[in-house]
Write a protein that binds this DNA or RNA. Structure first.
Lengths: 353, 353
DNA sequence: TTTAGCACTCAAGAGGATAGAGTGCTAACA
DNA sequence: TGTTAGCACTCTATCCTCTTGAGTGCTAAA
């Protein structure tokens, strides 16, 4: 609701302490928190705490499931807690080593790394890990190749500067002469190499086709094939790892989870608004959130200094933010470091040996 | 239990009719079936039916959840029903048209087709569709290609006679000379083309490596890369479509389903024993079955006359077999027809025009 | 061999009592 | 004026009992 400056000012130190205590306790127990339980955290009587809690409720930070129950944090309560109250301790040496140990490093490809990290994150947090990999804005086509592979069968190959490869089988009505093949490869080299993936539009396609002259008659399936490949590449992808953690989480409504897992478009849209740093979202915030009572923590990772995607978790609001936030931060940093190594290596350097 | 010839002989016509009626009724209602409900199917009094049911229970075809409840089919009951009693009507023209209409035919690749059919099957049956695609035994390597794509970056490409393509990025310590590249391509062409995918063993790898002489020093990552690609290709794949139908099915134990979906190895193993025709399995049969109370119906589909995989459904035992069995049969036949068209086209023919 | 009739069983649901966790309010206190 | 002890009150969760009704097995007659 309206969290005006006045209201926030009205939150003295003790109120904040109590709010924080309620959230901390609720995160652990999952049950509405009563005034007595808070006495462990604050040095006053339960009566005083009750008074304070009643006020926190009026201000919209807490709520009661029913009259004679304890308090539960509201969306605003969580928001305040995460933004201003939660204490995230930097990871110790041992913790970092533990996290590192959970990542398989035998698969050195970018996807392999990200997949391994997200599995670790899901395992660690008992949530589902989410990864969205955006198409790097600076990604351009570096190679178009056609490989004959059978009677009238050709494999189209598209490679970009960011290292993605896609292929597609194309069947033609006729076999091509080597002259035709050569023409196509040259034509593609001249017209597509260096072109950025997401700039390949319908119009561009039309222009290309008309520039091909009579070759178009036989080669047109290749052109549309390349076009489709580029479209596939330009698509942002979202992967959810550890879905079982959502299904077994009793904070959620089963049916909602099933619906969510069945259709990840919604999630895609949410992760699309790429945020610059670590970001915590709650399900009440945007009503487009599919899963009620959920929260999403994401952080971007980068490749060669440019954002390459986002990694995070989706779980219940009742999360141990103080632990999970550093995990997400550490892992995204880790990914950035590892794939940027690769990247620099690819582009400029030569790493001695 | 022991279903000896004597016992089976003891099943006169009326008993079979009653068993069939119990299964039919139970499939619809999901509730234990009482003697009165059977009166709709058989022209005798409920008392007689009760006597018969008591005997069917003694023989192991029915059971009671508790004393004063109706009867439910046992595993043996289902087995007998499916093997000898169920009446599967051949599909009508309209039904076939309806099924055809559910298949998207704009993606003409094999995977696209199979995916579309399995989605339709899942939708239609409210079960999960399962597809296992085996590596065709006759599939051989037709092409190995290396494409330079950046500083010390190369794409390995492996193509087989059955039309699968896989690629892998390989990073070397040094750039290769064109002479080295040429050597590798020739070497691979001579040694691997025509070799069947699943015959590529560790020993073969060793032999190849030793045959490469000094080239091995720089090219060894390529060899292991190719080896890994072939291993990936040789792997039988299992895909489950429509998982949500399992999760929302109240005949199952949620946790068991979640465990099942998390680990499809078990399913893979079951589908691995490729059966020659349509096959119905029940969860009691092999104790390796992950999901209790489930049944699997599969049928093979073929490509150019040779088995290419299996398509089917996994759902509760309480299935409308009389409808679903024809669906599975029709769809696998359909797939066989469509991809075999392709295949013949690829290998021998020329379709005019 | 079949069937009507009857006593019996058992699960599921309705209703009622109880316990206990937690509250708000009042009045006393520092 | 802020804090606290005390108390009446509220509401859920749980347990127990009772009832209902579907369905059975058995017996005796047709």
């Amino acid at each position: 609701m309206k969290s005006t400056a006045k209201e926030v000012r009205a939150l003295d130190d003790r109120k904040l302490k109590i709010l924080s205590a309620v959230v901390d306790e609720y995160i652990v127990t999952g049950e509405p928190v009563g005034s007595k339980a808070i006495m462990k955290y604050v040095n006053t009587s339960s009566a005083t705490i009750r008074n304070e809690m009643a006020e926190l409720e009026k201000q919209g930070y807490l709520e009661q499931p029913h009259t004679s129950a304890g308090r539960v944090p509201t969306y605003n309560g969580y928001r305040l807690y995460v933004d201003r109250l939660v204490k995230t301790n930097p990871l110790s040496k041992e913790e970092k080593a533990m996290l590192d140990g959970m990542i398989l490093t035998d698969d050195l490809t970018e996807e392999g790394l990200v997949q391994s990290v997200s599995a670790a994150l899901a395992e660690l947090t008992n949530c589902a890990a989410v990864v969205s990999t955006s198409v790097p804005k600076f990604s351009v086509i570096t190679k178009v190749e056609v490989i004959p592979t059978g009677k009238r069968m050709y494999v189209l190959l598209l490679i970009t500067s960011s290292g993605s490869i896609k292929n597609k089988v194309c069947r033609l009505e006729f076999d091509l002469s080597s002259e035709q093949l050569e023409f196509f490869e040259n034509f593609m080299r001249e017209n597509l190499e260096g072109v950025s993936i997401d700039s390949l539009s319908d119009e561009m396609l039309k222009k290309l086709e008309s520039a091909m002259g009579t070759y178009l008659l036989t080669l047109s399936p290749f052109v549309t094939g390349i076009y489709e490949l580029s479209k596939e590449m330009a698509q942002q992808s979202v992967v959810v790892e550890g879905e079982r953690n959502l299904l077994t989480c009793r904070d959620f409504d089963q049916n909602e989870i099933i619906r969510f897992l069945d259709n990840k478009e919604e999630l895609k849209r949410i992760l699309d608004q790429s945020f610059s740093g670590l970001h915590v979202m709650f399900s009440d915030e945007t009503d487009s959130f599919v899963i009620g009572n959920s929260s999403i923590i994401t952080s971007p990772f980068s490749k060669g200094g440019k954002t390459a995607g986002h990694l995070g978790i989706i779980g219940p609001m009742r999360l141990d933010y103080s632990k999970i936030i550093p995990y997400v931060e550490y892992f995204t940093q880790k990914i950035s470091d590892l794939i940027s190594d690769d990247y620099e290596d690819e582009e400029d350097g030569f790493d001695g040996k």
